[in-house]
Amino acid sequence: MSLNISKYYLENSRNRVLAKFMSSDEYFEVKIPSDTAEGQAIQARIVEVLEVREYPVRDVFAVRLALEEALVNAIKHGNGMSLDKDVDIKYWISDERVRIEIQDQGEGFDRTHVPDPTLLENLERPCGRGIMLMGAFMNLIEYNEQGNKVTLEKIKGVAPEQPEAEVQGDEEEE
C-alpha cells in the first residue's frame, strides 16, 4: 500500500509530499502548483481511496464534486492561476469519514459577501454556486477567518442536513 502511494507521488515529483499512516487511516499533505490538471490528479487519488474503502456511490459523487469546486476556487479565484503560487491540500480518510483541507495563497474572501446564486437577479451570475454545492453535498464546510482555507468533511453513508423540502420540491411555477 505505502509502496503504491510513494510511487504515485514520485511520479508527481513537483509535489512536495509528506505521507503518514495512522493505523488504517490515511493522511496526506500535498502541495500542488496552481494548475487544474494537478488538481484533477489529487481528485482522482482521493476518489480511488474512497472506492477502495467502499464509500457509497453517492458519497463519492459528493466528494468529487466538492473537491472540484474547492480546487477550482483555490486555483482560479484564490491564486489567480499564478504558477508561482501553490495550493496546500491535506486529507484524512478513514472508514467512517473523509476530511479535506484546501488552502490557497490568495487574500481570501468574505463568504457573507458572496451573492445568493439562487436569487432571480443572480441566476445568471457565475459566482457562489460552487460554495453552495459544496455545502449541500458535504456534511461540513468551513472557512478560516481569512477565507483562503476551506475544510470539507463527508461522513460515510450520512446524508448532509438539508432543507430537504427545497431540494425535493420540484415546483413547476416560473
Binding site: R58, L133, E166, V167, D170
Partner: peptide, 15 residues
C-alpha cells in the same frame, strides 16, 4: 438524479 440534484440545489431547475 445526482445531476438533477445539482440543478435543484442551485434552483436552476426553475430556469
Amino acid at each position: 438524479p445526482d445531476i438533477y440534484e445539482v440543478f435543484a440545489i442551485t434552483r436552476l431547475n426553475q430556469l
